[in-house]
Design a binder for these strands. Structure first.
Lengths: 345, 345
DNA sequence: CGGGGAAATGTTTACGTCAACATCTCGCGT
DNA sequence: ACGCGAGATGTTGACGTAAACATTTCCCCG
């Protein structure tokens, strides 16, 4: 019936309305629509209203591809991480998402199914044609070091991990301080020494915790038993816990994360060793379930939210200002619950 | 030395190389570069090699904004979800990410900090200028129903939840079957009836589980005690568990998720009620920690991976083929561990 | 009452890619 | 020898936006 716009039944509409459509509807130039769309203030109030009305009427949505092409910015940050299984990574991702959103950036997730160099390369390739202004790496930085993978040139990168790598700023929890707090607590309770279930050796975080554990023992003249090495999983904590339970000399255990600590608790229960009566257990992370473990777990609280926030801050600073931020360490807090007590006399 | 390209020191390079740069370097037309870049087969092998070499030399990366602008496709899907806290959502997100990546799509995360209608609108607005071809909603669909929010027109949507909403296909775990399995198991062990700690009423999943619980009891002529309502958190399970522990008539509890079940376990321990001796407890989810709870938790295993995969499949089918998929229910499995036993005679 | 200038608005163009179409180069059959 | 067609490659233009620059309007001040 009407002639101008080549009307189509609403159900069959093909093309989303563009700036030009809005401009026509509001009887202004495209540029004015652009100005309204971007919230510039040099537009007459009446004009602005007219444009906004036209936008609403047509259901206009700016085409982000065109915008990105024009501006060279995607307003999106990429996060590369291993499968989301780990509790800490989840929380960090959550905080990153929130921080990025608040800053007006969207967030693109780039998974790495297996933590191998090859897979990492694949992820970086994906990254290459992903539409992001910068990248946060939540991976065990170790891999990066070994890796000859070329990170896409010119793309700002922030690493969430303790890294030896100098190429990029690293944001991390103060692993060493946390471990120190945990060991100190156990020693203060009167334990002769503290056994340790470490995380996998390829993880810098695990290494930091383990080193701080050993150092703290040494400072107090306590003899360090051999460290056991788990893989962060509850199961590995359980199996290693069974070993410890069988050794009557063990009175205090520091597990490198809460999940392994949970495994240790189970192992102790099954072996008839009372916690904290016979054996005290400390974890690391303070996952939300830890307060309901049996017994409620004494652990080192990580402020994942803060880590996430700082990562985004550092990355966006580099993206927008072009200035690299320094490394940053987020403090930690010991939460004493009921899995620790003085050794039985 | 060379003349053509207006060389800049590598450190100061401003602009990423474009197709035109590669074309010049390889001495072909831009279109040929495009063809190589998109893996078309109608390019001579020698030419292809030359182009690939030029790409490698210049570090060429296709500009996804330009590509998206030209093709009208972003090759990205959006996921709207509440803060990542919940275990199940995490796992689902993980699977979605993997499935999307395998299909060559990237994934954009759009968080909703608080599950209110207002926040949901904000998320949808964000979505509007996000560069996605379709959306997966991991939210309690309830909100959608109440909400007058207009979803961006023409954007395919899939909901991960049991939804009454007919507007979009829903993919979900078979909540009812899971609850039925749990209650049945307890009844089979000889318990007279089963108490229930439900999830929040606004959640369809919680409602489904609760209804199935009630229905199963009714079918067996068991009297249904009043359902308690938690908020999925360990804490709420603990508090409600304390109530149940104080009631000597309680011998079997079905908690609507593992975290609340963990809270119940703690409450029972603290109240001196043996699990499973005095009280049997069943959860729902089968989180990775559940096998190490004390006692290891009998629970309903959800196949989150399958849910995620099917969601992506359904969404991409609609995006690429334009055909809506039917609702889909993912089956479930009862995992019997050590938190359940016949009632004490 | 005229001129200067700020504010509002319009016009032109380029961002990098890919579809559509145009052209070119061969090999092969008759 | 010639022409035809298939495959390889080149040319042109448009996607929707925003920066840069151009133009218009109108208010204020001397």
């Amino acid at each position: 019936m009407t002639t101008t716009t080549g009307q189509v039944p609403a159900t069959a509409r093909r093309r989303a309305p563009s700036m030009a459509d809005v401009a026509r509807e509001a009887n202004v130039s495209g540029q004015t629509v652009s100005r309204v769309s971007n919230g510039r203030d040099n537009v007459d109030a009446a004009t602005r209203d007219r444009v906004l009305a036209a936008m609403a009427k047509l259901g206009y949505r700016p085409n982000s591809a065109a915008r990105a092409l024009r501006t060279g910015r995607f307003r999106s940050i990429g996060v590369i991480m291993f499968t989301l299984s780990s509790f800490g990574n989840m929380r960090t991702l959550d905080a990153i998402t929130t921080a990025a959103t608040d800053a007006g950036y969207s967030l693109t997730l780039i998974p790495v199914p297996h933590p191998t160099k090859g897979e990492l390369s694949v992820a970086f390739d994906r990254l290459a044609d992903a539409a992001v202004d910068g990248v946060i790496l939540i991976i065990e930085a170790h891999l990066l070091d070994e890796s000859d993978v070329e990170l896409p040139g010119g793309l700002p990168v922030v690493i969430v991990d303790s890294s030896g790598d100098e190429r990029f700023p690293a944001i991390d929890t103060d692993q060493a301080h946390g471990a120190r707090l945990a060991v100190q607590h156990l020693l203060d309770l009167g334990h002769e020494t503290v056994w340790h279930i470490a995380g996998p050796g390829r993880s810098y975080s695990a290494t930091r915790r383990r080193e701080a554990w050993a150092a703290t023992l040494a400072e107090h003249g306590a003899e360090a038993p051999p460290a056991l090495e788990g893989d962060w999983s509850t199961e590995s904590g359980y199996e290693l816990g069974l070993e410890l339970a069988a050794n009557p000399a063990v009175t205090a255990v520091f597990a490198a994360n809460d999940q392994m600590a949970l495994g240790v608790l189970r192992a102790m229960h099954e072996s008839g060793r009372a916690v904290p009566g016979d054996v005290s257990v400390v974890g690391f992370d303070d996952m939300s379930e830890s307060s309901s473990f049996w017994p409620p777990l004494t652990t080192v609280h990580q402020f994942f939210g803060e880590v996430g926030r700082r990562s985004v801050e550092a990355l966006l600073h580099e993206v927008e200002v072009g200035e690299r931020r320094d490394d940053s360490l987020v403090d930690v807090e010991l939460v004493v619950r009921q899995s620790t007590a003085p050794p039985r006399a």
